[in-house]
Design a protein around this nucleic acid. Structure first.
Length: 644
DNA sequence: GTTACACTTGGTC
DNA sequence: ATCGGACGAATTCGG
DNA sequence: CCGAATTCGTCCGATGACCAAGTGTAAC
């Protein structure tokens, strides 16, 4: 684990992708198979392969508790350290380094933990200089303002410099050399990669949060600060070393001298980088082929600005499919065996039993790509309805009746019917055995795949996606309007000659969505960003004017947004908000409600989250409106009208 | 002991 | 989901 | 025709709102 952590630090130390790939390739080459598997998986920022459904169940709160215990500090210390770096891994590193320094100062060799009293309830508000915000502000934690953010409060003076710690580099381990002496868990090199993963597996098995925290503390105790930092990074799913799937594939190819294409192809079929790396070393990449009941990553579409751009890029033969607002799903079938997989390769068959049942009756075998929707008597229901079904592992009869699901198919990845596939395309296997008739269609042009798809008789609940053939940007616009009028999101326009490339966001599929609506809102609160946005106020909570009788003039929040501004604009706004902070509340601050921004969003939906009673889907700052006064911001009734 | 609620986590767009 | 930023390869421009 | 400048493709990181399940705790 130590070498892995050092390599990760090396990779983080450069922004040049070629250098990242080279450093990583050299490291991977030297590993044995077991370590190689785990090393690659960890490099994707996850504890287990993508196709592995296990989750460790340690989010921000659990990590906080475990690190505070391992570092022998009181509650709140992790939050405070987090506020200094906005990175849970770095916060861990900092606290453990301090712990080791204390031990050295006390002249301890290695030794047992020091007992400190039972932790007070986290989240209790800690008074004091920099209020750490305790457990409330982790990434993903709901920390939104709820009440009316109306009037300006007492004007607390914004304090001095906070932006000071800018230059701190990623902690590096390389300089330290072997430091086996100071290891709390006893002497020795620390746990190996497989041992760390085994510890993660134990955390999964422990089930109860308290037990998971215990295991995590035990693991952290066996690691040096750098290793602990990366364990926390892996657990929080965020490596932040500028390397993910794409570059990792390149590193694997470089490590073992295989063509990048071969590695990519193997990845498409596998969903397990570690396995692919081992195959790459042994020159067995060709063995990773699509197989029934082993999900492939879905092919993705690139966003497009307008019809003209699409017509320009794809040229005359345009295939425009309706873009349905549901969840992406891949359906595998062999005989009466049916499995449905989500976009991230998890088995969600149990969540959609009626769809699986419908598919079971079909006379074909193979793999289909499509979208799961809430559907009632052929009518497509809005996404919000479908959300009631999502994550429901075993929906009861009431739920099934209230939100019936259906499946819209738009592609065939493998099928048992149709003409024989080209000779070089081999049959799909199931658990190693070859099933005679099911062939992958990945390499065939979309037009061909669609023909085969259309030859299938489909049952109730499973319908074919709508396809049109506009020949110009004008017709494309008309098709778009028609799709919108059918209640769909827009279009996905495809090149009929293109093959199916799993997991890739190529330019063969372009999606066209409605131009976003916008509202002028007043910024009422700001927050410190995370990761590289640490040190700037990058996250804005904004509000509209309440125009309900008796509340005129109040501001009610409608959303939060972080993106849309350039780094330069964020820096400027940071300076301004620093000087116009009304009150600091941990990471959150109330600011003078004077800045007007134009916020773009996909749609407005009813919400219990914001004081306005509405929230935005995909909010984004479209632009600053320095020309506007807060009194010119849009009103609550305007929002309500948009929610319709 | 039972029930209700809050918090945490993970996963969808 | 979305967006901005960064890198590197491909393409165009300037001499 | 070659090197410099620009464009394009692709990747990475940071972040929104919603919902359900499972634990843990408080209230009865």
């Amino acid at each position: 684990m130590r070498r892995w952590a050092e390599t990760a630090s090396d990779v983080a130390a450069t922004t040049r992708t070629s250098e990242k790939v080279a450093r990583l390739g050299a490291y991977l080459r030297a590993l044995d198979d077991a370590s190689l598997r785990v090393a690659c998986v960890f490099l994707t920022g996850r504890p287990f392969p993508a196709s592995d459904p296990r989750t460790v169940g340690t989010g921000w709160a659990a990590v906080q508790a475990a690190v505070e215990r391992a570092a022998e500090v009181g509650p709140g210390a992790f939050g405070a350290a987090y506020d200094r770096s906005s990175d849970p891994g770095r916060a861990t590193h900092e606290l453990l380094v301090q712990r080791d320094a204390r031990r050295v100062a006390r002249g301890e060799g290695g030794g047992g933990g020091v007992e400190h009293g039972p932790r007070a309830r986290a989240g209790g508000l800690e008074a004091g200089g920099i209020e750490p915000g305790g457990g409330v502000a982790g990434p993903g934690a709901d920390n939104q303002p709820r009440g009316g953010v109306a009037g300006p409060g007492a004007g607390n003076q914004p304090r001095g410099a906070d932006a000071g710690s800018e230059a701190d580099n990623q902690p590096r381990g390389a300089d330290a050399g072997p430091e086996a002496d100071n290891q709390p868990g006893g002497p020795g090199p620390g746990p190996t990669l497989p041992e760390v993963q085994a510890a993660f597996a134990e955390m999964v098995a422990a089930r109860r949060p308290a037990a998971r925290i215990d295991r995590l503390v035990a693991l952290l105790d066996r690691l040096d600060p750098l290793g602990a930092m990366y364990v926390v990074k892996v657990l929080s799913g965020d490596l932040r070393i500028g390397l993910r799937g794409g570059l990792l594939e390149a590193a694997i190819a470089a490590a073992f001298g295989r063509p990048l294409e071969d590695v990519q192809r193997a990845m498409m079929a596998s969903g397990d980088v570690g396995e692919v790396a081992v195959l790459a070393r042994e020159d067995r990449l060709a063995e990773a082929r699509p197989a029934l009941f082993r999900p492939l990553l879905p092919m993705l579409a690139s966003p497009a600005g307008d019809a003209a751009e699409i017509a320009d890029r794809l040229g005359p033969p345009l295939w425009a499919e309706d873009k349905y607002d549901g969840i992406r799903a891949q359906l595998h079938k062999l005989g009466s065996d049916v499995r449905i997989f989500s976009r991230d390769l998890h088995d969600i068959t149990g969540q959609f039993p009626e769809v699986a049942d419908a598919a079971r009756a079909m006379p074909w075998d193979g793999i289909l790509d499509g979208e799961l929707l809430a559907m009632e008597e052929g009518r497509i229901l809005p996404f919000a309805r479908l959300q009631n079904r999502l994550g429901r592992t075993a929906p009861g009869p009431e739920v099934l009746a209230a939100v019936p699901a259906g499946y819209v198919v738009f592609d065939a990845i493998a099928l048992s019917e149709g003409e024989p596939a080209p000779r070089d395309v081999r049959s799909l296997s199931v658990a190693g055995s070859v099933s005679r008739e099911v062939r992958p269609l990945l390499g065939l042009p979309l037009a061909e795949r669609r023909t085969r798809l259309e030859s299938l008789a489909l049952p109730d609940r499973i319908i074919l996606g709508r396809l049109e053939h506009p020949v110009s940007a004008v017709e494309l616009d008309a098709a778009f309007d028609a799709a919108r009028s059918r209640g769909n999101e827009g279009l996905v326009v495809k090149d009929p000659a293109s093959g199916y490339t799993p997991g890739r966001r190529g330019l063969a599929w372009l999606k066209l969505k409605k131009a976003l609506a916008t509202l002028d809102c007043v910024v009422v609160g700001v927050e410190v960003g995370h990761g590289k946005r640490h040190g700037v106020l990058s996250d804005y909570t904004f509000a509209v004017r309440d125009d309900r009788p008796g509340r005129e003039g109040q501001l009610v929040t409608v959303g939060k947004a972080y993106s849309g501004l350039t780094d330069r604009e964020i820096a400027e706004m940071t300076r301004w908000f620093e000087a116009h902070t009304l009150r600091r509340m941990g990471r959150y601050r109330l600011v003078e409600p004077t800045v007007v921004v134009e916020v773009a969003f996909d749609r407005v939906q009813p919400s219990a989250r914001h004081a306005s009673g509405f929230a935005m889907r995909f909010p984004r700052i479209a632009r600053l409106r320095p020309d506007k006064q807060p009194s010119e911001a849009d009103s609550l009734s305007a929002v309500a009208a948009l929610a319709r």
